[in-house]
Write a protein that binds this DNA or RNA. Structure first.
Length: 752
DNA sequence: TAATCATAGGTTTTT
DNA sequence: CCTATGATTA
């Protein structure tokens, strides 16, 4: 047990506690990944567990790959047999096997966000609703929120609380859209990201034999970044671990930054009540950062109320103070960052890759890029506009998708008239309507085009069908690469791009080649046993840009704070610390959650090992207009003892910074005046004001007879709890509102 | 049906 | 600023 020697006491404890539920609260930089990998090694070596029986779930492919890599280094090739992957990819694979049980085929398509949005848009149009009221993104986030809480469209339409909410938002038809959305997805043989998890829950609920199979298969389940799980994910892991109870979750409530996509911090805060004999281990020693950085970070989240009790500390040196830098504009900010990197790199003999620039929104990267280019500093941007979102890539992907699944409506709409083949909007409309009215598959209509269309359109459509058919035959016989190559050529896509001799055109051509290369790589990779086009498509649907980039060149890294989680750099710049930008105005208005913004800031600062810089600008361009900005409130909240106002910045005390420079240059009324968060108007006359310390509890533990508080309906008593499908419902008599039936996964209740 | 032009409207974070 | 949609004309 040589490898246990380098661990501190709690780390060792976590590694050695192999059986029974375990929760590891891992502070930033506390060696979490190390503990996880050692724990797996320990399971295999000391406990003789078959690697095949260990399942590790992460949130990003990058994290999964990193862990796999480190385990392989630790214990060798045997590590290949442990299952490591993201929630989405893991359960997509399982669903691919079990899809027929849910009425899907194994070749189901995975819709990305763009496909989903487009589908919502068409449904809104079909229902003759105003797309300014029912904005696809907003509707989708509502639907997504429901799915993450396992609320089916049937349950959604029934729930009075949801109904009241939608009506208050002046969007009473969201439920109807949800219903049609799901029906269309099913018709198209498609699932969106949330469905992968939702349907896994359905699968496990309706097919106990299947559940049992995977329960036996995965005797040890580990969840990384547990604070980011949503209810749907949580219930899957809970079910998987229900028999053996060997569930180990690792997380840090202080780094929960994904509430916007359904992550529920309550999962970690209340985990203990779900597992009474839970063992909790806290990793509180930070090995990554200097003491000044650790203390500054601690002071940032000190104000948060909803958090677990822990104290992150470090034995490292104090190091430099955190540098605060003020710039007059966003361009000036870029210059300041670039020159500082340049000087530091030369003075301290650092590599470019020792530096990272973190920002709140992707759009902030422009000014910074320009400044770095001027200083000749190489940089790379992580994330941002994804490779897979480019038009030419989506076009080829759509052809491939349609080849595999000819019911995929979104793919169909993309390629039916691209390259141009004389099938205009009206013809496309006719085809879709025909499929609908006769209730026949899309493919039926296409292959009998002459029944539904006339003249030129009919001929072109028949030709299109023949073309796709030939692709399909190819796909059945050959691997993904051979097929894709043929599709790219014969669809005319490559020709179209090749003829475009502009620089962008050239780029697009190269991008398509790169996609083909990626497919070849996939086919050549020994680990991929299924080399069919269908298998490749399901894999690639869950890839993001971050996973693709294996660029090893020495460059400054630029990315959003969200993308930076789990990484570390010697020197880190957190830029754009301005009110309304960070904390984000959107977040503050729509979710009124300042705490999550604080945690985001915490994540950003704890990426730094040796030196941390915070910068802000007094003016900034947005939509081509100059805005006035104010320093972020976070700069007031941070412990001033850790701060040093840089020589370049103002030497005025923090309080005086606020408001400085305001009012002089404002034009057209676009002055960044601090806005109070919008007060959301209530629905009815009686509005309950929640108690000041209102914290929703984990309603999984709710029992009949409990007294509860609800943010809208006030106090009440639970009458009855019943299970219906995936949902648990509670009938509650509220003092001021009478009896309501609420979906427990959705209702924000506090158990008194 | 395709191509061109005008204008309106939107930007948080991601599997 | 950029894109995405809509109207107009060939």
């Amino acid at each position: 047990m040589e490898y246990l020697k380098g661990l501190n006491a709690p780390q060792k404890e976590a590694v050695e506690h192999t059986d029974g539920p375990l929760m590891i609260i891992a502070g930033a930089g506390s060696g979490k990944t190390r503990v996880l990998t050692y724990r797996i090694a320990h399971l295999i070596y000391s406990k003789g567990v078959d690697p095949f029986q260990i399942l590790s779930l992460t949130f990003t492919n990058k994290a999964a790959a990193e862990m796999k890599h480190r385990i392989e280094k630790l214990i060798g090739l045997e590590a290949r047999n442990t299952w490591m992957g993201t929630f989405h990819s893991t359960f997509a694979k399982i669903l691919r096997v079990e899809a027929p049980k849910l009425g899907y085929t194994s070749n189901f398509t995975i819709y990305d966000t763009d496909d989903s949005k487009s589908l919502v848009r068409t449904i809104v149009k079909e229902l003759r609703l105003d797309d300014k009221v029912y904005k696809p993104a907003a509707v989708l986030s509502r639907i997504s929120g429901a799915k993450n809480r396992l609320i089916s469209w049937e349950a959604y339409l029934e729930d009075p609380y949801i109904k009241a909410d939608d009506e208050a938002a002046m969007k009473p038809r969201v439920g109807d859209i949800y219903k049609m959305y799901q029906q269309r997805l099913f018709r198209s043989g498609a699932m969106d990201f949330d469905d992968l998890l939702f349907n896994t829950n359905v699968l496990f609920r309706d097919h106990p034999d299947v559940l049992n199979k995977y329960q036996q298969r995965f005797r040890y389940v580990m969840v990384d970044e547990f604070q980011d799980t949503n209810l749907s994910q949580y219930l899957i892991t809970k079910k998987l671990a229900a028999v053996h109870q060997n569930i180990c979750v690792v997380g840090d409530d202080a780094q929960s930054i994904y509430a916007f996509r359904g992550a529920d911090i309550q999962n970690i805060l209340n985990f203990e009540s779900d597992y009474p004999d839970l063992k909790v281990v806290k990793l509180e020693q930070n090995y990554r950062s200097t003491r000044h950085i650790v203390e500054a970070a601690n002071s940032i989240i000190a104000k948060n109320k909803r958090q677990l009790d822990k104290h992150v500390w470090t034995a490292n040196d104090k190091g430099d103070l955190v540098a605060l830098m003020k710039a007059s504009s966003d361009n000036e900010e870029g210059r300041l960052v670039a020159t500082t990197i340049f000087e530091e790199r030369n003075n301290k003999k650092l590599a470019n890759s020792d530096f990272a620039i973190l920002y709140r929104t992707n759009s902030q990267s422009r000014a910074l890029e320009e400044a770095l280019r001027k200083m000749n500093l190489p940089y790379k941007i992580v994330g941002g506009l994804s490779f897979y979102q480019r038009k030419e890539i989506k076009d080829l992907m759509a052809y491939l998708r349609f080849t595999v699944n000819s019911e995929d409506e979104e793919a169909f709409k993309r390629i039916i008239n691209f390259p141009k083949r004389g099938i205009g909007d009206t013809s496309v409309e006719k085809i879709m309507v025909a499929a609908y009215e006769h209730d026949i598959p899309l493919w039926e209509v296409l292959s009998n085009a002459s029944h539904f269309l006339s003249g030129r359109a009919a001929n072109s459509t028949s030709d299109f069908a023949t073309l796709i058919k030939s692709f399909r035959i190819e796909a059945e016989r050959k691997d993904a690469y051979e097929t894709a190559k043929k599709v790219a050529q014969q669809s005319g896509l490559l020709k179209e791009l090749y003829e475009d001799k502009t620089i962008e055109g050239l780029n697009r051509y190269e991008n398509v080649q790169e996609l083909l290369n990626a497919i070849k790589e996939y086919v050549d990779n020994e680990e991929n046993t299924d080399k069919s086009l269908g298998a490749f498509l399901q894999e690639i649907a869950l890839l993001t840009d971050n996973d693709r980039d294996k660029d090893q060149s020495d460059a400054v890294t630029m990315m959003t704070i969200h993308a930076s989680k789990g990484l570390e750099f010697k020197q880190v710049f957190v830029v754009g610390l301005e009110e309304d930008l960070f904390p984000s105005q959107m977040m503050m208005q729509s979710r009124e959650d300042l705490e999550e913004e604080r945690r985001l800031f915490y994540v950003a600062t704890t990426r730094a090992m040796e030196k941390l810089y915070l910068t802000y600008a007094l003016t900034r361009y947005r939509y081509g207009r100059l805005l006035q900005c104010e320093p972020s409130r976070f700069l007031d909240e941070i412990d001033p003892n850790c701060l040093q106002v840089s020589k370049r910045a103002s030497t005025a005390p923090m309080g005086a910074l606020r408001g400085e420079g305001l009012g002089s240059e404002g034009q057209n009324g676009y002055v960044g005046i601090k806005k109070k968060p919008l007060q959301r108007s209530g629905t009815t006359a009686k509005i309950h004001t929640p108690s000041p310390d209102f914290k929703p509890s984990n309603t999984q533990n709710l029992q009949e007879g409990d007294r509860v508080e609800h943010p809208k309906f006030g106090f009440g008593t639970v009458q009855k709890i019943e299970v219906e499908g995936l949902n648990r419902k509670a009938s509650i008599t509220f003092e001021n509102f009478g009896e309501k039936t609420l979906l427990l996964s959705f209702a924000k209740l506090r158990i008194l």
